[in-house]
């Protein structure tokens, strides 16, 4: 079928190619900002990449998904978000890229209130990796990875350079897989492509929603290792949702523990291990000691 002449016609229809006009320069330096004094003291004056002030999210039926969240992620740090399902961790992530709006309070992204920024432009500056990869099944790996650069209007040559630079970082061979389709890859490969896609436009912040949750234990461990080396190389600000305590301890610089819409503790793995703030955190730590990843 590929020999049919009007493939280009279809690819227009399916929106595969390029060139959306460029509204915003993604590389412009983020504005620095002021933070509430209380939190600032706690974290030695490092600049905030993400900050929430009194953020609540209430469902139409009145129940709270999140209640009065005071929270922040420093530049270059990896924040692991851990909690049971229904704890509000996914909702918190969705507030950051404005897939959801808080019913109360303000979310700051790089010092500017998220609600004052165009959601489309904002999302293009926030990398995103969903649990199942979320790759477009009808696009090649190349096209998938170049999604955001293409939305931002990069030249095709620059896009190509980015692919050839990025895929090897994730142990993927561009020559082998760039022109293949997601269904032709293994689960682990697909997830790595999803990470490459999130990093493609060099966003200052990357959001990962249980990125390794659906993989088998061996592949997961393998990917976690690669993630760690990538993390030290790229120095991105990352928010990583997980329900796996050992993953949070391995990958997170700091860990936020959420339960029923409240933050139980924010701290480094050491702080959590030595001084759990609530009985709930303590029970998590006990459980972790009993079954270390």
């Amino acid at each position: 079928m590929a020999s049919l002449p009007s493939r280009t016609l279809l690819s227009w229809l399916w929106g595969v190619p390029q060139q959306v006009h460029q509204d915003d320069d993604a590389s412009s330096s983020p504005q620095r900002f002021s933070v509430t004094p209380r939190i600032k003291e706690l974290v030695h004056m490092k600049p905030w990449a993400i900050e929430t002030q009194h953020v609540s999210k209430q469902f139409p039926n009145g129940a709270y998904a999140l209640r009065d969240i005071e929270w922040g992620v420093q530049e270059g740090e990896t924040m692991a978000l851990i909690g049971e399902s229904g704890s509000g961790k996914t909702t918190l992530l969705r507030l950051l890229n404005r897939l959801a709006e808080p019913t109360d309070g303000i979310v700051f992204i790089q010092g500017k209130p998220a609600c004052s920024q165009d959601p489309i432009q904002l999302r293009r500056r926030l990398g995103y990796v969903p649990q199942d990869g979320g790759l477009f099944p009808h696009w090649t790996i190349n096209q998938n990875v170049c999604l955001v650069p293409q939305l931002l209007g990069w030249t095709p040559i620059r896009q190509l350079e980015q692919v050839t630079k990025l895929l090897p970082l994730l142990n993927l061979d561009p020559a082998q897989i760039a022109e293949r389709y997601p269904t032709e890859l293994s689960g682990g490969q697909r997830q790595r492509v999803a990470v490459a896609r999130a990093l493609a436009a060099d966003p200052p912040i990357v959001l990962l929603d249980e990125p390794f949750g659906a993989l088998d234990p061996l592949t997961r461990h393998d990917l976690q290792d690669q993630f760690l080396s990538l993390k030290t190389r790229l120095q991105k600000t990352m928010v990583l949702i997980t329900h796996d305590m050992s993953e949070a301890f391995r990958l997170g610089d700091r860990i936020t523990i959420l339960k029923e819409g409240h933050i139980h503790q924010i701290g480094t793995p050491q702080e959590l291990l030595h001084s759990p703030a609530t009985p709930y955190v303590d029970s998590l730590i006990q459980h972790y000691h009993a079954h270390p990843g």
Partner: peptide, 9 residues
Amino acid sequence: VVETGRALG
């Protein structure tokens, strides 16, 4: 996939 597209801008 739709949700991912939206999240990526």
